[in-house]
Amino acid sequence: MSLLIATTLDDALAALAAGARPIAGGTDLVVGARHGKAPLPASLVAIDRIESLRTVGRSADGGLVIGAGVSHHTIETDSTIGAEWSALADASALVGSPATRHVGTLGGNVMNGSPAMDTGAPLVVFGAEAELASGSGSRRVDMATLWVGPGRTSAAADELCVAIHLPARAPRSGSAYLRLEYRRAMEIAVVGAAASVTLTADGAVDSVRVALTAVAATIVEVTGLTGGSVADVAAAAEAAAADQATPISDLRASDRYRRHCIGVMARRAVEAAARRASGETIAIPVNRAVGIGMAAGAAS
């Protein structure tokens, strides 16, 4: 086995072109190898020391560019992400444990392609694009194009995800990501939902996007949602999510229970997103602030 520790993007891309596989935090690759999911690749290139992959910055149009090597810990504590792309911070804050969040990266989560990834649904509702680089240049693909199946992406073997591009947020917008979880750390999404909501001046929903975690072969976006009162849109999201989900039965839940709960998560995500859009601050992660996460005696 060979391991190249790359310090520049060019070195990393050259290694990929020569057949190496990238490793950043290793929280999927190494754990998977230990559990017999897939052996470690014979040739690895470590990308965790490439500084250019570890930055968060504004784009010219007011959007955000998050380097693929940015950790979940950085995302959950970044004040800009928390304020404007709250759902992504909600999601990163729920990943694994503090140790996982310090080494696990956004790029790794996205490119691992698990339908249970927490950051995926937020990226979809933000209309994010992944920037894929190779020795022959780079391209940007939207999330629906990137994920083609469980653990599979449309990226070529020599392409490296170098950044995630988030478009600028419209005024009066808010977002949230909720997931069903059986415990409060070291958990994998049973189901999850992200919502992004833009309100009209009088507080109704002008536009809404909802995406779902762990109910299909990839992260999927709910279709057919339109504006209206927050309550109506939340109810519509609940019904549509339950209707459009194609969950499986496994150790974590039955398909029937998943279908019910994805509706609940979608409704709550829309409600929380609308509250944030109206200017209310709900602490990151929103999972700890609504439903099961609430403190004793607090109203639901």
Partner: peptide
């Protein structure tokens, strides 16, 4: 959260920390 599930051949289905849900400090 903690319970062993078996397949119809009496073999454990959740013999791993990921699927056998111990409580954590956060809980």
């Amino acid at each position: 959260t903690e319970g062993t599930t078996y397949d119809d051949q009496g073999k454990q289905r959740n013999a791993a920390m990921l699927e056998y849900k111990l409580q954590t400090c956060a809980d």
